[in-house]
């Protein structure tokens, strides 16, 4: 096989149908960008979950009465609540946080928001038992039953918050995946179209090739490569698009987002997502190319 011949055919083919090629490349690129964002969100779900679960605590807030009277959890019912929690095998540690300590934590969390600090006083913040779990996913099962106990005013289950956050991330992921699927379908049809047009404009060449006894590889490889090259260009565009989105995103916005959701870094995009996108593009374009050639181009 003469590579120079095949490559000159490929480049002629791509230039001859330049509008079609550009349309296909752009559609592929956009669908891959969406697919890439979907993959990033999948990773973000994991990262975010890990991040939150590491620090996940269940706060068992105590009633005002206990908060005011029992400042070190030695009296009933605080002491028995603490003991019962500690006896639970799923629980790692239980720490009592009285009103003064709670206020300190609050001050730290809202140090940049003076109005919040002005509004709050140590007496407004209830004492709590901060429960750390051995396996954070089981938070729901552990706290169940304690909300009805005497002395408990409210249970804040950090796990629920994480679940809600993760759920909304999953919606985002599904939306991007569905969007990328629709666009991918458009890209597939464009690839099929591109090959048909290419085969039509080159029908004399292909006819002659068949007559002089060129093998199927010789007649069809240029079309297949054309689709694959266009697919690869689309993938490269998508990858650079994703990376520049990550790099150029205003850092303030990124930081703010970072407090809530952990997104994977550019390293992950470059070395995990990019190869996936490139492979997907090449695989799909060559597959569609092959099927189209079988269906539409006689050998």
């Amino acid at each position: 096989m003469r590579a120079s011949f095949v490559f000159s055919e490929v480049s002629t083919g791509l230039r001859r149908n330049v509008t079609m090629t550009v349309a296909m490349i752009l559609t592929t690129a956009i669908s891959l960008i969406m697919f890439g964002v979907g993959l990033m969100v999948v990773k973000a779900v994991d990262l975010t979950k890990d991040n939150y679960l590491d620090e996940l605590e269940v706060a068992v807030f105590l009633t005002d009465e206990i908060s005011k009277k029992d400042t070190n959890c030695t009296a009933q019912p605080c002491a028995s609540l603490k003991q019962d929690l500690e006896l639970n095998p799923a629980v790692d540690t239980v720490v009592f946080r009285n009103q003064t300590e709670a206020y300190e934590v609050f001050k730290k969390a809202f140090k940049n928001e003076p109005t919040m600090l002005e509004l709050a006083s140590p007496q407004a913040i209830p004492a709590s038992l901060q429960v750390r779990l051995k396996s954070p996913e089981q938070s729901g099962a552990v706290v169940k039953g304690f909300s009805e106990r005497q002395g408990v005013s409210l249970i804040h289950d950090g796990g629920e918050t994480v679940d809600r956050l993760v759920d909304s991330l999953r919606v985002l992921r599904n939306v991007t995946f569905v969007g990328s699927l629709v666009l991918l379908l458009a890209a597939l049809l464009l690839i099929a179209n591109m090959i048909q047009i290419s085969a039509y404009t080159r029908r004399t060449e292909v006819g002659i090739m068949r007559l002089v006894g060129a093998t199927r590889w010789y007649t069809q490889l240029p079309f297949l490569l054309e689709a694959m090259v266009a697919g690869a260009i689309g993938a490269v565009l998508a990858i650079s698009g994703l990376l520049s989105m990550q790099v150029l995103l205003p850092s303030g916005f990124a930081n703010q987002l970072e407090n809530v959701v952990r997104f994977p870094g550019t390293f992950y995009t470059a070395f995990v997502i990019s190869p996936i996108l490139l492979l997907t593009a090449m695989l799909i374009s060559s597959l569609v190319g092959y099927v189209t050639l079988r269906l539409y181009v006689r050998h």
Partner: peptide
């Protein structure tokens, strides 16, 4: 059935190129 975008030489050479 000549290829209009190729020269005489290229037209003849084409038959050999495509069979490698």
């Amino acid at each position: 059935r000549l290829l209009t975008n190729k020269t005489v030489f290229e037209n003849v050479a084409f038959a050999l190129e495509v069979i490698g």
